[in-house]
Design a protein around this nucleic acid. Structure first.
Length: 817
RNA sequence: GCCGGGAUGGUGGAACUGGUAGACACAAGGGACUUAAAAUCCCUCGGUAGCAAUACUGUACGGGUUCGACUCCCGUUCCCGGUACCA
């Protein structure tokens, strides 16, 4: 036995053994129950950061625990390899993004392996591999056939000098990040996927996600944002056109005093033709970034168009305004405004001197409508035939009136918008469409898939180099054979990350997108673990995509489920000095340095111990050393094996065995409920302290001690697998610790007949009493009154009430006698 | 702005479903061992008062419910995440 714990040698040794024995492979044909544990795959930025380490240590602990419980575990890894950073790096280093990406993948793979994570590497995926993205192209052509993929115009951030579309991230305070020019909105024809067609299923299936955090389910529900209301059609004065709006408050319809349309609305553009002033305002509106946060926080501005619309019920003419906070491509790009009953409309009306008409009043009392909008439901006033109705009644009556008179009717609206999948960028999967003068947008036929992305082009910071690549750009139309052009946009990278979880079940399947047999065995994912920042977009798109693949016939509900992720754990971020680690702030911690100094097990232990998984983790270098010290302390427990003699102390043995099995219970509980590994590791530390303090005397004392150290090694295996294996070997355990059976709680060891009961007087702790486990209130009361510390609080007091919480405390409520 | 989450000692955190606030660590201080250092071990460690026993006080802030509140309710402040082209 080596008397010092040397991590580097031990870790290399066990990693080799695990690889040789193939214990990490998921077996497709196996009798054992299967379990699919998935961590969010990384973007290959080049270096593993602490957020990755945290994510993968959590996943590895779960995967290893499940293996020790007899499951056939699928625990895969891969690379979300397309995206913007590769293009930025490409510009900086003057090398094609593919080169940078693959070099990073190689580097990060080494780092992951060094951590001793139990991945099935035979299933590794890189999304920039044509063998992967070809299936996404294939599915897209099917969606086109079904009408679920379509082209429409949408606004993008545009930088004129750079001649390129900017990502929101590249817009800094309304300016281009590279040249600092003011960003403009530009309207481009782009591809969408009709996620709104699945809005209802995405919403109702949230009820199936009992294994998801409530907050994520709630965020998705809000994001989908189902609201029922009415569609209202306003006729225009001096024109045959109508202005369509949606409202959730048809009961306030009689209070409409003006209309507001987006700057991009055709009506606004038309009005601007005769008004230079309005044209200037529209120009100004086009300079706001497309970010929601910017749109919502900017100063609300508007200008009259000079046009009027007719109120559908009263026939009154109401002015139509252009407002910078109304968005085109969001509903109909027009809203009806009821300043008396909407806070934003109220402010706007005040600012521009528009009239305010109160049509709802509180059910009780009065409301000072001059001071603020009344936004609650109430009773109708100033509403002609609808007067005296409640808001709820009026919603119905007015909606019915609209339907009866052909001016609208009931409508359900979702906040969710269709998924814009076009990106005007190079480093992404090509959209498999050929634009032909004769035939229009033609999907690339299966036989011509994949549409290979040329990997040798050099981005410049301007438009995508695909525009200049004639060999890629010009092709023959698959339908008519005439010369045509490829679509030059690439897919949003969320496309790749939306189906990888299902692809892992058959990563190497080359005759189809998915293998339904593999889906039946592995899908859906039993446990998904990743950053909370993906709570809405990624997780919503992945749920959607899973359903799209199901409906494309790739698997049935019975085979793959209707939802891709059964259980979800959202981990918090890793912080340093209170903020997110980032290179620009210079507060990064390189996992490599920690691994080199203390070993992978220490890095793993600390990331799991420092904070509960769903919370932010504040990095602390000193804490890492503490983790390392703990491992060294465990190591030294070996010194007391088989050395002590003397008489066994029965009470001490009983106490130790109780402590051992309480630990088994606590650690198991952590794995089965909520993954509070920080508490589980604390429990293992406590057991270590108890074992350290224990003097193993006699045969039974030595046996209890050995049991404790062996179970400690076993329970450490999911967290610090190399260390646990080495310890297990030194203990002479039959199997590798990582393959040992997970320990069972010995119920007999937990039993105790005497307990400590806390005694409170007036809810304040005044003493403790030792009593029988199942003592009744009378007995407990007698013991309490006999206790000196308690007694003095009862002097001259009359006992009003006594509360016994069995096994916990006794509270005595008194009042002066 | 909107949606979601959070706030407990010097620090990270613990406290099961409303029942002993501060488990387990880190840091700090004191001590043992050592020629010395490292390593290791022991002690102290929310605040105030006290030699101590102990008492009072304390879970962001202001109210409330309860025999009893870190936990539930109402209101406020600050911090973090998302906000549809970062992934």
């Amino acid at each position: 036995m080596s008397d010092r714990y040397e991590a580097q040698g031990i870790e290399a040794k066990w990693q080799k053994k695990w690889q040789a024995s193939g214990i990490d492979a998921a077996v497709d044909d196996d009798e054992r129950a299967s379990y699919y544990c998935l961590v969010m795959f990384p973007y290959p930025s080049g270096n593993l950061h602490m957020g990755h380490v945290r994510n993968y240590c959590l996943g590895d602990a779960v995967a290893r625990y499940k293996r020790m419980n007899g499951f056939n575990v699928l625990h895969p890894i891969g690379w979300d390899a397309f995206g913007l950073p590769a293009e930025n790096a490409a510009i900086k280093h003057q090398r094609p993004p593919a080169e940078w990406t693959y070099a990073n993948i190689d580097q990060m793979r080494v780092q992951l392996k060094r951590l001793g994570l139990s991945y099935d590497w035979s299933r590794e995926i890189a999304t920039c591999d044509p063998a992967y993205y070809r299936w996404e192209q294939w599915l897209f052509t099917r969606l086109m056939e079904k009408g679920l993929a379509y082209q429409a115009r949408a606004e993008v951030n545009w930088c004129d000098p750079c001649h390129t579309v900017l990502a929101n991230e590249q817009v800094v305070d309304g300016n281009c990040w590279r040249c600092d020019t003011a960003v403009q909105r530009k309207n481009l024809k782009q591809w969408f996927i009709r996620i709104t067609a699945y809005a209802e299923e995405l919403l109702t299936d949230l009820d199936k996600l009992s294994g998801w955090p409530d907050k994520v389910v709630g965020m998705q529900r809000n994001w989908i944002g189902k609201s029922s209301g009415a569609e209202v059609s306003f006729a225009m004065v001096d024109s045959d056109e109508t202005l369509e709006v949606f409202t959730t408050r048809p009961d306030t319809l009689m209070g409409v005093t003006y209309m507001a349309v987006a700057a991009g609305h055709p009506l606004a553009k038309k009005a601007a033709e005769n008004s230079p002033e309005l044209a200037l305002f529209l120009e100004e509106c086009s300079k706001i970034s497309t970010k929601e946060a910017d749109v919502e926080t900017m100063e609300k501005k508007g200008m009259a168009t000079g046009c009027y619309a007719l109120h559908p019920i009263t026939g009154d003419a109401v002015p139509v305004w252009v407002a910078n906070f109304v968005l085109m491509g969001y509903g109909t790009g027009a809203v009806m405004s009821v300043p008396a009953h909407d806070a934003r409309d109220f402010d706007f009306a005040h600012k521009y001197g528009l009239s305010i008409k109160q049509v709802i009043r509180p059910l009780e009392g009065e409301w000072p409508i001059e001071d603020a909008a009344f936004t609650e439901p109430g009773q109708l006033i100033n509403s002609a035939q609808f007067d005296a109705l409640t808001s709820a009644q009026a919603k119905q009556m007015i909606t019915t009136w609209l339907a009866d008179n052909g001016k609208g009717g009931e409508r359900v609206q979702y906040r969710l918008r269709d998924w814009l999948v076009s990106r005007q960028r190079y480093w992404g999967a090509p959209i498999p469409v050929i634009h032909c003068q004769q035939c229009g947008a033609v999907p690339v036929p299966d036989a011509q898939l994949p549409v290979l992305l040329p990997t040798d082009l050099q981005p410049t910071g301007g438009a995508s180099p695909l525009n200049e690549c004639d060999a890629f750009r010009y092709v023959d139309c698959p339908r008519c054979g005439e010369r045509a052009e490829r679509e030059l946009d690439t897919f949003d990278t969320f496309m790749e990350s939306s189906w990888y979880m299902d692809r892992y079940t058959s990563s190497n399947h080359d005759s189809g997108m998915l293998d339904s047999d593999a889906m039946r065995r592995w899908a859906p994912v039993d446990q998904y673990i990743g950053g909370v920042e993906h709570a809405v977009l990624h997780l919503l798109y992945a749920r959607f995509y899973h359903k799209l693949m199901r409906d494309a016939g790739l698997f049935s509900s019975a085979e793959g489920g209707d939802e891709p992720f059964k259980n979800l754990l959202t981990q918090g971020m890793v912080l340093k000095d209170g903020t997110k680690m980032s290179k620009s702030k210079g507060n990064t911690v390189d996992p490599k340095a920690i691994i080199e100094r203390f070993g992978a097990d220490t890095a793993r232990l600390f990331t799991l111990f420092a904070a509960p998984p769903e919370k932010e983790l504040e990095w602390n270098d000193a804490g890492v050393e503490g983790g390392h010290r703990f491992l060294k302390r465990v190591w030294r427990l070996l010194e007391k094996l088989d050395v002590a003699d003397g008489e066994a102390d029965d009470a001490a043995v009983k106490q130790l065995r109780r402590s051992i099995h309480i630990t088994v219970q606590r650690v198991t509980h952590a794995f089965e409920h909520g993954f509070a590994f920080n508490v589980a590791i604390a429990a293992l530390m406590e057991l270590t302290n108890n074992l350290q303090d224990y003097q193993p005397k006699g045969a039974s004392g030595q046996a209890a001690y050995r049991e404790g150290v062996e179970l400690l090694a076993t329970m450490l295996a999911p967290f610090v697998p190399h260390f646990a294996c080495e310890l297990g070997e030194l203990l002479g355990m039959q199997q590798m610790a990582v393959m040992a059976d997970w320990p069972q709680v010995d119920a007999a060891a937990l039993e105790q007949h005497e307990i400590t009961l806390v005694v409170q007087v007036q809810g304040k702790k005044r003493g403790e009493i030792k009593v029988a486990k199942d003592i009744d209130q009378q007995g407990a009361m007698a013991a309490a009154e006999a206790n000196a510390a308690v007694q003095k609080w009862l002097v001259d007091m009359q006992i009003v009430k006594v509360i016994l919480v069995p096994g916990r405390l006794l509270n005595i409520v008194v009042k002066p006698a």
